[in-house]
Nucleic acid binder design. Structure first.
Lengths: 138, 138
DNA sequence: AATTTTACTTGCTATTTGCAAGTAATAAAA
DNA sequence: TTTTATTACTTGCAAATAGCAAGTAAAATT
């Protein structure tokens, strides 16, 4: 079973952020929720670029205990659970948007969609508000 | 010698960003340059929350080959090198600012300074511009 | 009652990190 | 000009983490 990474708790906000979600997978899981509408373990397994099942289980546990995700049962199918973003998690969307813009600028093979990019640039606040509302009501 | 992490090269901009700097140390090195004015190997070793020397060497190499950093000799002391951000590296500052804002909001022990935070909120573009200019002329 | 779905866990190997010590080139001091 | 110190690394090894394949358990479906 993978373990949580050592926390630096130095007070530096950059270090705090990296200690919380600074690994290869955490933000991809959040991307799956925000951009692909994933909610369940199975959906993350399929959507997240081939994340290993034990690593996925570990990251979900970590993100839940960091209060970035909340887990609830699917009322219609008690075998499965829904993972949703908390407000703390939703507040990570701006970080993801900046990453998207940076990669769109520097990755020649980027698949970032032009419409999305122009929306982010021309009406960032509106775009963020739409995402927030969608996530809150999901 | 640590090796580069496996690249996913899937076209997803979030994955591209994480493949490039999505680890516990890369953005801390960049923070050292941007916020602490670090330039040399020794300064990174001292500033970066106790990064191990071999990991530092590896990350510098990776960031250089990703064209985020450039390495040049100190003309006054040929034993040492200066590491500076390229434009590609400078363009990561917005990502770092978002992380700072998120951590300032959610870390009760944050040491993020209020003046900096209000400057970021009230005049983000101006703040970014100041940083860019300082980094370019350094 | 048997099968399938869903969300994991377990065990093992490979990779990466972290620590301590060592090296090589240049500069400074004696 | 020989010795010492600085600076930027490299090397070797142990510990932690990631990745892969197979297994388990509860709930739903057939």
């Amino acid at each position: 079973m993978p373990h949580p990474v050592k926390k630096r708790h130095t007070g530096c906000p950059v270090a705090f952020a990296l200690d919380t979600f600074g690994d290869r997978w955490s933000l991809l899981i959040i991307r799956d929720i925000v951009l692909k509408g994933s909610k369940t373990y199975g959906e993350f397994l399929e959507a997240s670029e081939g994340i290993a099942t034990n690593v996925l289980a570990d990251r979900l546990k970590e993100l839940e205990s960091a209060h970035i995700l909340v887990k609830s049962r699917d009322p219609n199918n008690h075998r499965r659970y829904f993972y949703r973003l908390t407000e703390k998690g939703i507040d990570l969307v701006p970080v993801i948007l900046e990453m998207i813009q940076w990669s769109a600028k520097y990755d020649p093979q980027t698949k970032a969609r032009k419409e999305v990019l122009s929306k982010i640039e021309s009406d960032r606040q509106g775009f963020l508000q739409e995402i927030r509302e969608r996530l809150r009501e999901s």
